[in-house]
């Protein structure tokens, strides 16, 4: 996207970017409009052309994988708490199918662990 900015590092394309609305101020301090993108890897702003590389796509994929692993771990923690309650207060989740809450949570945990193993391999 076009934003007023100053290039900090020519090699990496790292920029200082004006994020407010006062374009007159940005012009007065020597910023110019350039096509920049906020990196999904480190949240810094770079010239867009410097991010259109296989290396960046690879880093982005790794970051997404790390974030997914983090989300799974959070969910596993939450499900562990629910399983303790399900053991202490056993109840049927679905009377017709005869499925308990504990079985229901175990199934979810099993799916998440499988995904976690795949991501971690």
């Amino acid at each position: 996207m076009l934003k007023y900015c100053k290039i900090v590092n020519l090699e990496t394309g790292l920029c200082k970017v004006g994020l407010g609305t006062n374009t007159d101020f940005y012009k007065s301090i020597g910023m110019i409009e350039l096509d920049v993108t906020q990196s999904e890897v480190d949240n810094q702003w770079y010239l867009t052309e410097k991010l259109n590389t296989p290396e960046y796509e690879e880093k982005k994929a790794i970051k997404k994988k790390e974030e997914r692993i983090y989300e799974i771990k959070i969910k596993l923690d939450e499900l562990d708490k629910k399983r303790i309650r399900a053991m202490c207060e056993p109840e049927l989740k679905d009377g017709e199918a005869g499925e308990t809450w504990l079985e229901y949570y175990n199934k979810q945990i099993s799916d998440l662990r499988k995904e976690l193993t795949e991501l971690s391999s």
């Binding site: 900090v8 920029c15 200082k16 004006g18 994020l19 407010g20 006062n22 101020f25």
Partner: peptide, 18 residues
């Protein structure tokens, strides 16, 4: 602070306040 003139600042970089 003037919230209309916010400028991003790079991480891990020594900078001088203009």
């Amino acid at each position: 602070p003037d919230y209309n003139t916010i400028i991003s600042a790079p991480l891990e970089t020594v900078q001088q306040a203009e």
